[in-house]
Design a protein around this nucleic acid. Structure first.
Lengths: 233, 233
DNA sequence: TGAATAGTGTCTTTCAGACAATATGCC
DNA sequence: GGCATATTGTCTGAAAGACACTATTCA
């Protein structure tokens, strides 16, 4: 490999205005657990390219738009809620990922408690649908790849952080918490070992409330402790 | 919070050309272990803003530049080497992080074996210096924050991946490997436990070579196994 | 009292961590 | 033989994982 065609700070224009800039979009993957499945909120594209393909909600941004605020704005439009877990995922920049021209996408993902969202109440800009991440159709652009990447991130963080918190209501049963792990990790866990482990981490605490769910013993409700924790030191 | 000023796909220009786009830069954090310290390659800024401040090597990119290739180009210019570990770190986009205007930085980090680099042989575009990550001066822009973020990523990945491989020559002594962990994690490890653990992971294998380093018993040289591994399932 | 889910304890195995003596090559 | 680093094994405590029965409420 030779060294003839390399970028060089010294040869670029001094003024930002002289640059030929790529377009930037923000895309927000909104995950929630519905019916014991990990699902992502997708919308049907209303125009070309990829007309009528399912896609991740997002927007182009302009020069002055802050990144995370743009992501939260998209999130609010699609779900009608604020104050949920939001994390930058990755920046996807393949040169030909958008047929209209060069578009670099900064992807974020959000985690939403299954009960906090009411798509019917969300502003109906473009209604999103919850689609199981394991049965995705072919999506617009490289959005299948982006979702796969996000799911791997979520799986990994489940093991060393308390992000499960963000997928549950404030008060929850231990079986609900266990289900979050089982659904995302695609495994089944022993109930006794799971409870022993969770309680030993000191990240959840019992509340005084119980949940009456039918013809059986009511369940104690727990919540995550408010203090910051580190699961593994 | 009201919903009046939100971005909307529907109201943005249909053509990418009509957008007011932010500028994009690629910055590459180049890490290596020198003299039992984790160091990062920094350059002195040759002009305003932050004239003569130390900074992370990087460049603005233009519309058609692929991201990772731009990062590798920067890396080659600063070190004269190819084929090293390179990973996208994070995209930093605070609105006021560059006094010249809006600049979004896509940061990458590279890990370099300490012996593979010869800054004297690197193209002297702008010579980089290796600076201990624990004794950084005030850097240009938000570069202190970017380096702190990268160091945390490296610390975390050391525990569940084989990135130590990328900081060592192909063949190495177990004491060298241990030193990588000790320097980055800022801890001291028991030699017997460390060796037991590393060998049990089946990610390294002994070679037939030894290293003669003075008036003492020569050390066996090891190498990382070529097959892909998962340290923790 | 039967159905349905909640809640609980023991044993075994594995792994992390503390700890020190011998081996080998060079001078 | 002295020096410097390389190499090796045991014990203990903690945590993970396998495993099954009792408790409570409602219909």
């Amino acid at each position: 490999m030779n060294n003839t065609k390399i970028l060089s700070t010294e040869t670029l224009p001094r003024n930002l205005e002289e640059l030929q800039k790529p377009a930037i979009s923000i895309q927000v993957l909104i995950f929630s657990i519905k019916n014991n499945e990990l699902t992502v909120a997708l919308i049907k594209r209303p125009r070309e390219p990829f007309l009528n393909f399912w896609s991740i909600p997002g927007d182009m941004i302009e020069e002055k738009d802050p990144l995370e605020a743009a992501a939260r704005s998209i999130l609010f439009r699609k779900t009608g809620i604020h104050d949920v877990y939001l994390e930058q995922l990755y920046t996807f920049g393949d040169v030909n990922r958008d047929p209209r021209g060069r578009v670099i996408t900064i992807a974020y993902f959000a985690l939403i408690p299954h009960d906090s969202i009411d798509l019917a109440k969300a502003p109906p800009t473009l209604k999103a649908s919850w689609i199981n991440v394991d049965s995705l159709p072919t999506l617009a652009f490289d959005h299948n790849k982006i979702i796969r990447y996000a799911v791997e991130r979520i799986k990994a963080k489940l093991l060393y952080s308390d992000i499960a918190k963000s997928l549950l209501p404030e008060k929850f049963r231990l079986t609900q918490l266990q289900k979050v792990y089982e659904v995302i990790l695609k495994t089944s866990l022993d109930k006794r070992n799971f409870r022993k482990k969770m309680l030993s981490l000191n990240i959840i605490e019992p509340t005084d409330d119980t949940y009456v769910g039918g013809s059986h013993r009511p369940a104690r409700l727990f919540r995550f402790c408010t203090k910051e924790i580190v699961i593994f030191e």
